[in-house]
Each structure stands twice: as C-alpha cells, then as structure tokens.
Amino acid sequence: MNALQIIFLVVAAVTLASAGFVAGARRTMHAALWLVLTLLGVAILLATLQAGFFAVVQVLVYIGAIAILILFAVMLTRGLTEEQGAVHHRWWWLAALAAGGVFAVALVILNRWPGFQVLLEELPREAEAMTDWGLALVDPMRYLIPFEVASVLLLAAMVAAIYLAMSRPGGQS
C-alpha cells in the first residue's frame, strides 16, 4: 500500500462520513455545512485522478457557488416549520434499503467487469489536454452542439431562476 492509496482511503472515509452526516443532520443548515466538506473531499479525489481542472472547478462551482447558494436558501426559508418534528420521513428505513440495494447491485455488476481491478497509473502530463479540449468544444464536428446547448441551458436556467425568485410588487405575499 503506497502513500497515494492511503491518502485516497483517508479522504474517501472522511468524505463518506461527512456525506453520512449530511444525510443524518437534524438541521438543514448543518447538512449544508457537511455538504461543503463532502464536496471538498470529492475535489481532492478528482485531483488524485489527475483531473486537475475539474478539481478546481469542483471547488469553484460546487463549493464556491452551489453550496453557498444552498446556505443562502436555507437561511432565507428558515421559518415556521423548520426544525420541528422529525427531519426524515417515517419510512426512512425503506429508503435506506433501496439506497443500499442500488449500492449492492452496482457493486455486484461492476465487480464482474475485469477492468474493476485495473490500477490507475500516473498519466503523462499532456493527458489532460486542455488546449485540445478547448478547441474541440468549439469545433462543429466535435462538441460544439452539446457545448452550445449547455450554455443555452445555463442561460435559460439563469433567466428562470431570476424570474421565479423575483418578488413581484403587488403579487401574492
């Protein structure tokens, strides 16, 4: 067992533990804070995969934007019903069973695949070919259309979010 593997195991354990706290936290606020730790752990794991770009994006987009957005939303909606009674549904055990089932099924199926045991080597530096990728994203014969669709989706989401969250003067409440 080498150093990288130990790092992986530690980070994975911390990440999954904090994920467990997200699932179990009594307050939504606490769940959101644990989520930040989970996302950070995933960012480190992405770095161990040599996906440096995505590790950075993970920190910027997920922790910097999404998690903060969630925290704000929690604070904005904390009201009458928050933190009263159980935070989970009473059939949580059924959900646990289902989630465990998904995990088990995925594992059994993956385990039958020979690639499961493959050791991931260190890649040469040029493997994460950012320049090529950037060019491919705007190449009509490669990813231009998915890329454009994604940007239009973001734009639409932004407009929709502003429209939905806007409080109209004279509107309801």
Binding site: T15, A19, G20, V22, A23, A95, A99
Partner: peptide, 12 residues
C-alpha cells in the same frame, strides 16, 4: 456516495 445522496434525497 451515490447511495448516500439517494438516501438523502428520498428521506429529508
């Protein structure tokens, strides 16, 4: 992580 996320989405 997926399973934990699924559990969270299902039960909270």
């Amino acid at each position: 992580l997926f399973a934990v996320g699924l559990f969270t989405a299902l039960t909270r």
